[in-house]
Design a protein around this nucleic acid. Sequence first.
DNA 1: ATTCATCTATCTGTTTTGTAGATGGGTGCT
DNA 2: AGCACCCATCTACAAAACAGATAGATGAAT
Lengths: 298, 298
Amino acid sequence: MNFSLDQLLAFQAAAESGSFSAAARRLGKAQSVVSTAIAHLEIDLGLSLFDRGGRYPRLTAEGERLLRDAQRILDDCRHLQALAGDLVGGTEARLTLAVDDESHLPWLDGLLADFAQQFPRVELELLFPLMDDLVHMLLEGRAQVGIGYEQIEPQRDITRHVLGRVSAPMVVAPAHPLARTSPVRREDLAHARQIALTARGQGTEGQPFQVSSQVWWVEGDPAVLELVRRGHGWAMVPDFLARGPLARGEIVEIHCEEPLALRCHSLELLWHRGRALGRAGQWMKAALLARGAALLAA
Amino acid sequence: MNFSLDQLLAFQAAAESGSFSAAARRLGKAQSVVSTAIAHLEIDLGLSLFDRGGRYPRLTAEGERLLRDAQRILDDCRHLQALAGDLVGGTEARLTLAVDDESHLPWLDGLLADFAQQFPRVELELLFPLMDDLVHMLLEGRAQVGIGYEQIEPQRDITRHVLGRVSAPMVVAPAHPLARTSPVRREDLAHARQIALTARGQGTEGQPFQVSSQVWWVEGDPAVLELVRRGHGWAMVPDFLARGPLARGEIVEIHCEEPLALRCHSLELLWHRGRALGRAGQWMKAALLARGAALLAA
DNA sequence: ATTCATCTATCTGTTTTGTAGATGGGTGCT
DNA sequence: AGCACCCATCTACAAAACAGATAGATGAAT
């Protein structure tokens, strides 16, 4: 690697402005500087980048090809500098967001798009751990911001803030027998197959919501929804997930005559009390608090 | 952009060797050079890359993140240098291969893989023009190497060399009536729908091979094959394309009692007599001549 | 054909930067 | 405490980058 960034910069400027003199003016340097820089670059690379036959230098075929690579290098350099500026300004290089379940992605989508625009150079990491893992990740610093349902035993180092409440209506496929007899009796529910949510580690999470004696335990609400859509049973599916399929008529809501222990949780924003968040993390936290509830409901 | 490539190089070497002194030894420079280079880089970026607390310097979190970008820049620089070396050594930066039809891709596949290994930095362009366009592309320098069927009127500037002969057996779906009565009579063929090849520009290419009065003209052999597979008629399909579906029983071959004007062409390698090929083009030409026939048949 | 504005290459002296080696202060292991 | 190794800093010197000036060349306008 014999050449220098200044040489590449002169190369790019000359190629773009069409003349060495114009490039020198643009770079605020003397013409001789650009001229020698390119001459040296040509010596280093062992070929000529410009055809000096005419009044204005013209890129050779090789020059044209190599220019693309040179531009990429310069772009990367600018990226490095900008990233360093970010870090100096307190923006972290990477933000890890731990979300209870990937079924939350749809309503997070717009927020993430804004984040990408606001912090183009921050690497966003999205993880979907189970509830307990989520808290551990925050405690260990593996993740900086978490979104999850309310915990049974709060940790003292974890700050929590309610984003909104998520209710889970009972739904069933339109062709399912239960769809015809709404409102249904509790016994009807108890004798039809229920698709209930479970978690990989702890098999007991969904037990308070078990109504039927025939249960299929399924990991993840999206999978639950899919099985309901295919008519395998009824389930309680979070509002924001059920909304689309309900509107399209792929599933229908059913009601029960008697009150049930309906799935209805607070969705909470979690972060570590001790660890300071960078600018990106602060933005994410503030944006979730400000718009999270609305997004969740919309 | 204040920093220099030497500084990035020192940064990388120091990060990899774990000490500034070791990096200096590796780079063949004095220790003070590495030390000041990194110090200046830190000033330019506005943050510290190493933690000098202990015996050995240790990357800070920011340094770790920025190192990745630095390495990418250096890799790109090495790529640029290697590419320049290629060009000096007579290897072209881009090779355009014009092939009569994309149906030839399967047997070209292995060859292209070898090419990628042999010339990792050469951009390969694959185009699939019609016969006449193919010759024009070679004449105009838009493509350097061509693969196509024998032409009616040879051009004096285009050199041709036979790669192999491609025969096109008559095939039909297993469920098709013609599949039951093989060998078939010419009248049977004439009264069943024929799927025949045509080209976008000139509608007459396939006319010598028209046997039936009911014809669907279709652009491209893969599309012809697909229609045959779906039982829409019979067709003459190039050997190397028909082989797989024949083996899987998706189509069957039929024979005619009387001799027909069967599709059987020489597949030729074409290049421009006047334009010198670079190393990559020469390799491609030689590889096709040496192994093309075998690949075509296998 | 000649003029003219503008281009590039090259030379010059000056300034800036890069460099090796030496020095001093520090760390961690024995 | 001794030792081996590390890093930052200083100094003097060599290499380079630099601005400005000059000369030759090009293409358009006169």
